[in-house]
Design a protein around this nucleic acid. Structure first.
Length: 463
RNA sequence: GUGGAUGUAGUUCAGUCGGUUAGAACGCUGGAUUGUGGUUCCAGAGGUCGUGGGUUCGAGUCCCAUCUUCCACCCCA
């Protein structure tokens, strides 16, 4: 081994234990999705660059992994570009010439593309789920990877606020099933638009929200400073401050906003929507806390209504689930007027949370239950035959593949937590019996070969 | 993308002021036990000190570059 192999930055291998744990997360999420009537789809790992560019803002575009064209792509670069001196933005300008595909950045935009392309095969409202990896050229950190799985649920083609309510119930049920305590934060983009309207700067909505999103982190004074640099007047900032620092119950926050914002068109609409979701939600007992959080802005610029984000109560990590309503996502692909709402679960961060809280169940039951020792060519055929017999009755069994020292075979059983070992050696063979060892207690007993299968079955039930 | 830390055996980590043969624990392999694991005892293997350059009589140790991981920004699942 002259050179140690390595992995690209921000990517990981998953061993057997990690995969059992990951599959536990995926199957829990998938089961709840299907319980609410969502249907699975998949899309390719790569999309054309045109599909992805411009959907996530300038910052997002930089984080898209682009795929180099095949063949002699350099010869296709226009000569006037090639002859230019190397300037800082040369690579940016030749990018469109050398790449036309990219790895998907999220599942929502490919879904929008899917809907537009398959509109004549889809019955609306369309409820789908999608569990696949996405890639971002971000700098890795804790809970931040360059390849990670998203688990998306969306319903597209329905304006009803019942969908928002249903998604929050799905979130609550999934985290209850996973045993994770969470707070579900909700807001509405229209309320934020109403604030921009209130201060007479509706065109500054993005500047308003980008800084506002950091409120709990940097405090109101720093937010106001950033607003100033982003072109929001000092007067406006002072006017907004009391609205954003309201403390109290969800209802108290909404009441305060109602007195201040209900005369703005967007503000009133947003408050009505938020209020109705909360009213609908009151019909169901929820395990999680649902909290109105006006600072919830989320960078993705396609949200138009509800904004949802989920945080772990026990582990400090970025959000583990997020989403919202986007009124016209398919519009950019030439299919206007279709409203969608959805959320995305971050499986890798959920894994990190469960690891911290030691919330994973034990997975010993998924491993082998019975191991047959291998004594040699004369003795092993009966072991293989009996193992197959056990498998036919649903018991996970295996035969040690090599004629190794018993010590080594026992170590294998021990390290793989196999609870029962069956030995059929020369002496057992002549007597027509098998020695059965309980690896937990160390006790051994004999069984006739004919009754072995039945004995092991009842034995396993007693463990 | 910006700034800061980090890297020594399979793993977690020692390694003094730059000095001769780089250590420990756990793990691994073999033996004590030729048909018995998890406990115990004994022995052994395993290192281009992330990589590449430089300073020096001499570099794991100092300098530069690069990569990895981690942290803070930016942004986000």
């Amino acid at each position: 081994m002259s050179q140690k192999p390595s992995l690209p930055k921000g990517t990981r291998d998953f061993g057997p234990i990690q995969m059992m744990r990951r599959n536990f997360i995926f199957s829990t999420i998938q089961q709840v999705f299907e319980l609410y009537g969502y249907q699975p789809i998949e899309t390719p790992a790569m999309e054309t660059l045109d599909t992805l560019l411009g959907k996530y803002g300038d910052e997002g575009d930089k984080l898209i992994f682009k795929i180099l064209n095949s063949g002699d792509f350099v010869s296709k670069i226009p000569t006037n570009l090639l002859s230019e001196a190397i300037t800082p933005d040369l690579s940016r300008r030749i990018t469109p010439e050398i790449t036309e595909k990219a790895l998907r950045y999220d599942l929502t935009v490919p879904f929008a593309r899917f809907v537009v392309q398959h509109r004549d095969e889809i019955t609306f409202p369309f409820k789908r789920y999608q569990i696949q990896p996405v890639w971002r050229a971000d700098r890795p950190q804790k809970g931040r990877y360059r390849e990670f799985y998203q688990c998306d649920v969306d319903v597209i083609g329905s304006d009803s606020l019942q969908n928002e309510t249903e998604l929050i119930r799905i979130i609550d049920r999934i985290f209850a099933d996973l045993g994770i305590r969470v707070t579900i934060k909700i807001n509405n983009r229209k309320i934020l638009a109403g604030m921009a309207e209130l201060i007479g700067q509706p065109e500054r909505l993005t500047d308003l929200t980008v800084a506002l999103d950091k409120l709990d982190k940097i405090g109101i004074e720093e937010v106001k400073k950033e607003w100033l640099t982003r072109g929001i007047t000092e007067k406006a900032a002072t006017e907004l401050q009391p609205l954003l620092t309201v403390k109290g119950s969800n209802q108290e926050i909404i009441n305060t906003l109602q007195t201040n914002l209900s005369h703005t068109k967007n503000g009133k609409a947003g408050l009505d929507e938020l209020n109705q979701v909360l009213v609908l939600l009151a019909n169901y007992p929820l395990q999680s806390t649902v909290e109105v959080d006006l600072t919830l802005a989320r960078g993705l610029n396609y949200y138009t209504g509800a904004i949802i984000e989920v945080k772990s109560d026990d582990v400090i990590i970025g959000s583990i689930c997020g989403g919202g309503r986007y009124d016209d996502l398919t519009g950019i692909f030439g299919m206007p007027g279709v409203s969608g709402v959805g959320v995305s679960f971050g499986a890798d961060r959920i894994y990190d949370v469960l690891e911290h809280t030691e919330g994973f169940p034990g997975f010993t039951q998924t491993s082998t239950q019975v191991l047959f020792m291998n004594f040699g060519d004369k003795e092993s055929p009966i072991a293989y035959q009996l193992a197959e017999e056990l498998r036919n009755s649903g018991i996970r069994a295996e035969v040690y593949p090599d004629v190794a020292k018993l010590k080594k075979q026992f170590q294998y059983a021990d390290q793989n937590h196999i609870p029962i070992v069956v030995m059929i050696g020369e002496s057992e063979l002549t007597e027509g019996k098998a020695t059965v060892r309980n690896m937990i207690t160390g006790l051994q007993s004999d069984s006739s070969i004919g009754e072995l299968s039945a004995n092991i079955r009842s034995y396993l039930l007693s463990l």
